[in-house]
Amino acid sequence: MTAALSMQGVCKQYEDFRLQDIDLTLPTGQIMGLVGVNGAGKSTLLRLLMGLVRADRGEVEVFGQRLPEAQVAVKRDIGYASDDMRLYPGQTLRWHMDFIRGIYPGWDEAYAQDLVKRFDLKPQQKLGGTSHGQRVKALLLLMLARHPRLLLLDEPTTGLDPVARGEVLEALGYVLRDEERSVLFSSHNTADIEQLADSITFLHAGRIVASEDKETFLDRWRRVVCQGEPGDALRALPGLHSLRHSAPIVELKTGAYNDSLAATLATLGLMVTSVEPMSLEDIFVTTVRGGGKA
């Protein structure tokens, strides 16, 4: 399967931030969720993939074309939306639709009208007088109605109320049925990523700390509750991210769970009382608190 995008050894240095050694590949038709705290480098990574930023080192390719050199050709096939992107408040949605339609030959007016209805938008209303949710939905409409092959979404649901967020996710879910379409989207809301993504990439302090298939990723994380006394050997256990002790209960969170863990813990004097899967949010928080090693 050809890669929709790939980054090899990419570095970008700013005055107070450094994105380093980024190796990332997104196969065609895959949906990748990008998770990271504010300032982790998610937006910079997405801007590199749009050709808006030139990498200091390494190679950035989208659809096999180098960026930023091929940014014009590549951007014809990318739908990009970021939380700092705003439409013209003095103009109507219809005006924006006509503007985009003039640029992209693949504009699908029937689909656009469908999205207008589904998002409950008013094409003749000036965007300045609409809610933030309406504006985000308008932005997504402009992007989706031209059927881009790759979607790069930087915090697309930030600031949306639950209803609007649900509508947006539903629309994205509909779009993502197309197996030829690839998506890389970042979000604070790990529930969104858990709901939509095929794979997950953790970014922390400018580095990728994990990037793999969602099921595999979630599968190796567990919250294990035991009884006993934790010793130094337990603290050195591979994959251990969190350890809490409230005698006689010991709670540990591991990113390297396997079926032999209970036996290993038993040799360390701990008796496992429960093993629970972890939500992505829990994993995210645990990873960040643990210093960023997933």
Binding site: M50, Q71, R76, S82, D84, M85, R86, L87, I103
Partner: peptide, 12 residues
Amino acid sequence: QQNVPFIMSLPV
């Protein structure tokens, strides 16, 4: 008004 990111996202 942060319209610039919108323009930058176009094939330009």
